[in-house]
């Protein structure tokens, strides 16, 4: 297989990995799978396009704007779709976070609807590079935007991995995801932690908008595809592990490109679905996940 194909796959997979980081962040801090997570990135691409072209800001400033927008949006989602459920919930219902699934699907739908109203359904260019030409790299050809996405995913994965293991917030999240009640007793402010997780995930998801958008263009329908495939990457790697998310995302991207090349592009999503099913059947905890013991 050619290096060019692999690189193209890695670039797509890198985006899935970034989405999967976002899922991990809210799962570990708030115990909630935020369905609106990929929508932050979609909004980020539009904000980046607007800041680059209409405002003519420099790239670092564009990223700052995206981060701020994403942080606010993340906070709004947490305050409207997650926090009220936690305070209203009188008793623990059936599965974990079912209520949040409905409300975050709701939040994501509102975000999608607003994006349609503001930007319409046609794709918009995110002109990060004046000239996004292919360059030679490791014996293959790759666009500069692809390399940038791959590099970003690698760097973020590393940073998040270290951050989770070392920082106070990261450790608090670990404690929370192990045992919420025990963490509360240890003085972890789970309320604040939950908000912080959504703010960080929003900032991260939207902040990479300029980089992702340079590759994918800014388009509303991007959110749903990324939401699903990012989730498959997360499952493949193992929920909670950033390294797993990175490996899972990259593997999925390469697999998808190979499938498209050898079987035809109609099989792309089908292949991802098959992988998803296989993982759940064979190794439901994912590559880097740990099997949870059952507690009664």
């Amino acid at each position: 297989m050619s290096m060019t194909l692999v690189l193209a796959g890695l670039a797509i997979g890198a985006i899935y990995a970034i989405i999967a980081y976002g899922y991990n962040l809210t799962v570990t801090t708030a115990g909630v799978l935020n369905f609106a997570n990929a929508h932050m990135t979609m909004i980020g691409t539009f904000v980046a396009a607007w800041a680059l072209t209409s405002l003519g800001l420099a790239v670092p400033l564009v990223i700052v704007v995206c981060v701020l927008v994403g942080a606010v949006l993340g906070l709004v989602v947490e305050l409207t779709a997650v926090a009220p459920l936690k305070s209203f919930r009188l008793r623990r219902g059936g599965g974990v976070g079912h209520g949040e699934l409905v409300t975050t699907v709701g939040a994501s739908t509102i975000v999608t609807g607003l994006a349609y109203i503001i930007w319409g359904s046609d794709p918009i260019q995110v002109p990060l590079f004046d000239d996004d030409r292919r360059v030679s790299f490791l014996g293959g050809e790759v666009r500069k935007s692809d390399l940038l996405v791959i590099g970003t995913a690698l760097m973020l994965g590393l940073v998040l991995h270290v951050w989770t293991q070392r920082s106070r917030l990261g450790l608090a999240s670990l404690a929370q995801s192990e045992d919420r009640d025990a963490a509360m007793l240890q003085g972890v402010n789970v309320r604040l932690l939950s908000s912080a997780g959504f703010v960080i995930a929003g900032a991260l998801g939207s902040g990479v908008g300029v980089i992702v958008g340079a590759k994918t263009l800014a388009v509303v329908s991007l959110a749903l595809v990324l939401a699903i495939k990012g989730f498959v990457a997360l499952t493949l790697g193992g929920v909670g592990s950033h390294v797993g998310a990175l490996v899972g995302g990259l593997a999925l991207g390469v697999g998808e490109v190979m499938t498209a090349r050898w079987l035809g592009s109609d099989y792309r999503s089908l292949m991802v679905f098959v992988v998803f099913m296989l993982v759940l059947l064979v190794r439901p905890q994912g590559l880097f996940g740990t099997k949870e013991g059952r507690t009664v």
């Binding site: 799978l33 989730f231 498959v232 109609d266």
Partner: peptide, 28 residues
Amino acid sequence: APGIRLGGWMLAIGSFFLVLLVPDFVNL
């Protein structure tokens, strides 16, 4: 099927995925 062993999110998103596959499948 994704929900049989895991339930919850896996089921929700896995089954949602199937909705997106409908056009691909019909076209195939």
